[in-house]
Design a protein around this nucleic acid. Structure first.
Lengths: 189, 189
DNA sequence: ACCTGAACACCGTTCAAGT
DNA sequence: ACCTGAACACCGTTCAAGT
């Protein structure tokens, strides 16, 4: 069996979704492909690189048509797309957040957000701060949503269904006195 | 050598600070204490529990006198305290963020923030959303600050010193039409 | 180009047994 | 109460060698 990079990423995604991030080991992925673990190192320098490629693929597959016109509506739209992309896969938020925290993976969401936020006429130096703040919020919130969803699906059905995710939450920034405003949906799907 | 829980936490913190979270293994901590790794399981049910206790200790040691009076000044003060507490230890932000994401560790920061934000007269149901948003922002931002600090201290001195952390960043919330405002310092120490 | 086989240096956790 | 010793079932990564 001879594989290409994309084959391995595809299979890694199904393993992720079926068994979770903790069980996505190089050895497990290898055996799932019917291949020695060492064979994977022909395609990826190390596990981190593979995970970064996985995170990119998750975001890529979550891409949607974008129709919003105002800069704040654009930010909202991007936040929703990002969140939905991560929540579509088991441990997706954890994977993407980890990869992002370590500065790996594509800068796609950063660029898209920067493009949207550039419509807010922020001072140039302040734009990256705004991008990061929105991104932190979306990643952190999705991480928590997913953790709670998955915790709820494992036995702890006894706990009252958390209601705090049932709001539309507005995120505003005030950077050097300039107000930025955007919203991120946290409604249950 | 007979140890108590607190001895182990103390030593774990020095190992964390010296070698980082990735090298803080039960085996390594055991050998650092001159004890079999299995001995640690007399004091902690598992590694996750130990890490949660470590996160709590980091926040506890970072506690400061609080003097702010307005609710928004209180939120700012708490955010700064939290951030400084995490940045005081190698991988401190990663540790605390991970423990928090998995719903472990003390609910201390949540309670403190809820107390501060309760002064904003938000609808009851909306308070936890505001708490989580501020917390996500502070954790996510500290995580990124620390990652970049540590990346910069390892060889990559060539890169231009990132200037985007040199701002006071304001975080505003708009929840169900009600405005909340707080600030978090991102100045270099 | 892609993979095998074997090795290296590790992990977290359990459990009977010791003092 | 606290620890040892040994075991179980794993890890990521490297590297010579094969096709």
């Amino acid at each position: 069996m001879r594989y290409r990079r994309t084959d391995i990423i595809d299979r890694a995604l199904t393993v992720l979704d079926a068994y979770g991030l903790a069980d996505l080991s190089m050895r497990r992925l290898g055996s799932e492909l019917g291949v020695q673990p060492s064979a994977l190192y022909h395609h990826f320098a190390n596990k981190q690189t593979l995970l970064a490629a996985l995170a990119d693929e998750i975001l890529e597959r979550g891409r949607r048509e974008r129709s919003a016109s105002g800069w704040d509506a654009k930010v909202l739209e991007l936040g929703r797309e990002l969140r939905d992309a991560m929540l579509a896969w088991r441990d997706g938020a954890e994977l993407v957040a980890t990869v992002h925290a370590f500065g790996l993976g594509a800068a796609r969401p950063d660029e898209d957000l920067a493009e949207a936020l550039s419509g807010a006429d922020l001072p140039e130096a302040v734009l990256p701060v705004a991008v990061n703040t929105v991104l932190h919020f979306v990643l952190g919130h999705a991480l928590q949503e997913q953790t709670q969803m998955q915790a709820a699906s494992v036995g702890a059905i006894a706990d009252e269904p958390r209601e705090r995710s049932d709001f539309d939450l507005g995120l505003g920034l005030v950077v050097d006195g300039i107000r930025v405003h955007a919203e991120v949906s946290t409604r249950r799907r």
